[in-house]
Write a protein that binds this DNA or RNA. Structure first.
Lengths: 250, 250
DNA sequence: GGCTGATTGCGTACCATGTACGCGACTCCC
DNA sequence: GGGAGTCGCGTACATGGTACGCAATCAGCC
């Protein structure tokens, strides 16, 4: 990554991947396709983590020279955008909305979390400027649709849904980080607890952390992550409900 | 990073940084200290982003050979843990709790967000297994203290506070990602909007995305991030309130 | 006061990354 | 059949973390 990172540069006008021309014409038959590259990259990222996705690796997996990939994809960031959009379409968006905002919102949140757990590398990408691929657009439309028809201003609609999305991302961020540590170091949560146990024992013996102590001694050691997520989600949905009521009788 | 990433290895028992012996003794006077290294690394990360924090760079900033750092710090990951804990203590934790759970929780959430915006690199670290440094421990204790004395089981206490924390992290994740893009590419949000405008125009013209269209046309173009965050936070706190009421009368 | 052995600083080396550049081979259009 | 545009890709560069081993340094013991 050459002179980058310190240049408030002139790149300010790159057009989005989605609207770049698909030139056709004269030369030899392309032996690859953007789709093939994207699919391979997704498979790699899912199986071995984002770090495994290097241009060299993708190329070798496709039995192709590294630099050949750059005939199809402008930069690695573009590739990541394309990967994200592919994956955002894979679950068919979860079917029609029912009109029950609470159920619909819950369904979307659950589906979004599952998608990100299947493809841990999407979270950081999805959380930055949305790469406006067709599938991302359809998802956004559907999400806003949940609170449509309730007489809200668009800013309120995006505020409500945005809050739920933020919660989902926050939870998933932690879950992914944990899984990532396990994948990279091979140290499971139990290993960790054992390694940290003696130190925590000392800390508890000091007596300055009574609640932490209660937590270590009394808390459920293996809470079901799904239940934890769903519990917090209902809490957030209660918050949405309260807000909706307040907005409807001013 | 040599043979790592594919080894379900035997590392399973590394002790936490916090409990490693500080050997003293025979040799020459150390010309550095862990603290000096950590401080330099934090300064660098804040000023130029995590990517600027390389062992070579820190060393050169301290006018010292690269490999000298490894006499004080075992790996870069350890260094990141140490950096995190340093930063977690910098705001004095925000003073005494008032006993008003809603105000206290709001204060902690606001402070936590500010801390992460000041030091964008902490989020991914804080979200994975907590590096149990002294400052992190005090923060955790304080957070649990907010919902202490309400007669809740420790699992409920950690569920409630965890949900709030997840929301904060989700919001901040997006804010940081945006800032990071600006820092790295120099493309501001307005530049982005301009670059993407024509493409979005086409999409809107198709007519398949009425809500997205409303959003583009009617939504506040420059919402105050603080207000957006606080708005969502109140929503979540309403959810907490609802949950508390339900828990208190079973 | 000199020896022993631990500790410090650090140069060198290895492998991995993204991608700019430019060359030769291919193929469609005229 | 020739020119123009495209494809595949080898080479090269700067950047990253850190294993290894050597020389300089100094505390403690005799």
């Amino acid at each position: 990554m050459p002179p980058q990172g310190t240049n408030p540069s002139q790149t300010s006008a790159r057009s989005p991947v989605w609207s770049r021309p698909r030139t056709a014409g004269r030369g030899p038959q392309p032996s690859l396709s953007v789709e093939a590259i994207v699919s391979e990259a997704v498979a790699l990222a899912d199986a071995e983590g984002v770090d495994a996705v290097s241009m060299r690796r993708i190329a070798s997996e496709l039995s192709v020279g590294t630099m050949s990939l750059y005939r199809y994809v402008e930069t690695k960031d573009d590739l990541l955008d394309l990967m994200t959009d592919q994956v955002m379409g894979e679950d068919g968006f979860g079917g029609e909305l029912t009109g029950d905002w609470r159920g619909d919102l819950r369904g979307i949140a659950v589906g979004y979390r599952e998608l990100m757990l299947r493809h841990p590398w999407v979270l950081p990408i999805a959380a930055s400027r949305p790469s406006l691929g067709p599938n991302v657009l359809r998802r956004t439309e559907r999400l806003l649709g949940v609170v449509d028809g309730l007489g809200l201003h668009i800013d309120e609609m995006s505020g409500l849904t945005g809050t739920v999305v933020a919660y989902v991302r926050g939870v998933v961020l932690t879950e992914i980080a944990e899984a990532e540590v396990v994948r990279r170091t091979g140290q499971t949560e139990d290993d960790y607890r054992r390694a940290v146990g003696p130190y925590l024992g000392e800390v508890m013996a000091e007596g300055k952390h009574p609640l932490l102590t209660r937590f270590v001694l009394e808390a459920d050691e293996h809470p079901d992550p799904d239940q934890v997520f769903l519990g917090g989600l209902e809490l957030v949905l209660d918050g949405v409900e309260a807000r909706l009521e307040r907005l409807r009788r001013p």
